[in-house]
Design a protein around this nucleic acid. Structure first.
Lengths: 248, 248
DNA sequence: CGGCTACTTGAGTATTCTCAAATTGTGTGG
DNA sequence: CCACACAATTTGAGAATACTCAAGTAGCCG
């Protein structure tokens, strides 16, 4: 594999939320991993995935965690009786598989949304590396904690926000994540389907569509399939927060 | 403080879910902490709280994590614009405050539901202890991961289960946690209000009441204020899973 | 170009919420 | 110990949001 020193621009992301989404604590961008440090101790394997392919599935033996280098993926959870849900969307710089640490098998699925390049970090080696390098251990811990905080924020959003508010919050979240990677926060292409967004937001896909249509008709965004322009960030923030005042 | 060797019966809890709630992966009981080991490195301080008192509040400097020794508490999250939510209920053996690790200040509230005894574990000392004792670090990591898995399970429940199903799942969850501590899983007293349960389940308190009333009228449980008898665990499990078939 | 999937839109329904009131329990002070 | 005030719980009726079902349109891939 291409083992040249590959500086992950992950460092651009900080714990402090520079432009947090009002209704949604910007925890999601916390936790950064120093790949170069890891390389000293862990044999990093590269994987390439096409859209639709699984990085891992629930039930498969847990052997490694993964760092997304390029592309987009989603995590999904399926219960015994078939109910399912998208639990997270992942992009460059995100760690995947940490939720299975300590378990014999993976506890959820990871599926590519487009062409991906993912670095595999064998867990036994990672564990040893973390014991040797406190800095690494702290980064892993920070990632785990960030995950908890992010989940909690979304749980709050699900409990307290209406459908349109949740969709607005989601768009702002995506925008801020794109910005954190150096892309435009005004114009981006969603990598996931309406159904995926709906699942993540605890809605139905028709409801997501309707929310997008409505936000579009308000002039806050422009949507063309998966291509999104954010036209009025301030107003969108306001929608995500308050917005119980709705005069169609 | 009373620093005699106080064996936390937490060890009774295992990663394997002995009698999982069907619709709800029983992750919540994973993660155990070896207090005696911690005592060797960390000065453990004891706190007593009365119902309603806060162990910590969002915004206060983060200095320690806490181990619940007796009593019940809840965690809560409040957004800038005042929306709030109960994120977790805690009991004997649970670690609290881990979600604030790495942050300057606590990111959520912790409030006692009744008289509590909580052990404070100053974080700097914990950090050092974890670096010295890999076993401890693994326990902390396991706790964090268990937290993630538990949150994800509830998120799935919120997305895919109706109000009554969620309430049923909650009762089964409480029952299994009580059982894990050696108490009856058929008869217990809820320590939190209907409003707390509702907040945790992303419902309104009236809806929780109605669900309890209905489950009671079906003969699956008996409810008297906060006192609950589980009369038909099997049926309750079935409700928590399927139960879209509802003939009032 | 054809078949498939994803997305959009509409109409009616259903679950849960909101608002309101009654009831019951809890704690405090007389 | 009782009376009172306050908080929690229960119940009802109506409203609203999001869902279900259905159809139609539009992109995508071979």
């Amino acid at each position: 594999m291409n083992a040249t020193a590959f500086a992950m621009p992950v460092a651009a992301r900080t714990n402090a939320s520079p432009a947090g989404i009002p209704g949604l604590p910007d925890y999601s961008t916390a936790g950064t991993i120093d790949v170069n440090e890891i390389r000293k101790y862990v044999p990093v394997l590269q994987h390439r995935l096409h859209a639709g392919e699984h990085l891992y599935r629930a039930g498969q033996p847990f052997r490694a965690i993964y760092l997304v280098h390029a592309g987009f993926l989603k995590n999904g959870l399926v219960s015994d009786d078939g109910r399912e849900r998208v639990t997270a969307f992942r992009m460059r710089g995100d760690l995947m598989g940490v939720e299975s640490i300590g378990a014999a098998t993976h506890v959820c699925d990871a599926q590519a949304l487009d062409n991906c390049c993912v670095w595999e970090l064998p867990y036994p080696a990672m564990l040893k590396a973390c014991q040797r390098v406190p800095e690494l251990q702290m980064q892993l811990t920070a990632t785990l904690v960030a995950e908890i905080r992010s989940d909690r924020s979304w749980m709050l959003a699900h409990s307290t926000l209406g459908a349109e508010q949740r969709v607005a919050a989601f768009l702002l979240h995506v925008a801020s994540r794109h910005e954190a990677l150096g892309y435009s926060d005004r114009h981006f292409v969603l990598r996931m389907s309406r159904a995926d967004i709906a699942s993540f937001l605890a809605l139905k896909h028709e409801t997501v569509t309707r929310a997008l249509t409505h936000l579009s008709s308000l002039g806050l965004i422009a949507v063309q399939l998966r291509e999104v322009h954010i036209l009025d960030r301030e107003a969108l923030c306001r929608v995500a927060n308050i917005a119980n005042t709705k005069l169609h």
